[in-house]
């Protein structure tokens, strides 16, 4: 059981995060909530990427005084570097999106996407 949880809490959990975010994006009417959903998906994907690079019993890929050479069982640093990038971009996009939402709210006085005619086509 523990083994199963350990194994699946990362993959399954991250996929669950993505799905929850997706569900929010598809069903919610409030723009802010949709963005929260997007943010959740973002997080889920990041977690999934990092957990893909995990090595059993691995340690952080930093050479320090205790781990003083590179023959240790390091986890994969590449996904971590990528995720680092991804987080920052996620933040930037989120901020931009929020700015747009602010503008939309000023114009339509609502955040309900079914009432915003500019969003229908």
């Amino acid at each position: 059981m523990i083994d199963f949880l350990e194994k699946w809490s990362f993959f399954g959990g991250s996929v669950l995060l993505i799905l929850i975010g997706l569900y929010g994006v598809i069903t919610r009417k409030n723009l802010i909530k949709i963005f929260i959903g997007l943010s959740l998906m973002d997080t889920g994907i990041n977690v999934l990427l990092v957990s893909l690079g995990y090595v059993e019993g691995g340690i952080a890929p930093i050479i320090t005084s205790t781990i003083n050479n590179n023959s240790y069982n390091f986890v994969d640093p590449i996904p971590q570097a990528l995720v680092l990038t991804s987080i920052v971009i996620g933040v930037a996009v989120l901020a931009l999106g929020l700015g747009v939402i602010i503008k939309i709210y000023e114009k339509y006085n609502t955040l309900d996407i079914s009432e915003i005619r500019g969003l229908r086509w």
Partner: peptide, 23 residues
């Protein structure tokens, strides 16, 4: 070659934090 703390010199990237090396 083996990379050893405070000993190895003149590696391609000399940062101890490997993630930083990559980034």
């Amino acid at each position: 070659e083996q990379v050893i703390y405070k000993e190895s010199k003149d590696k391609e990237s000399g940062s101890a934090n490997i993630v930083t090396s990559i980034v």
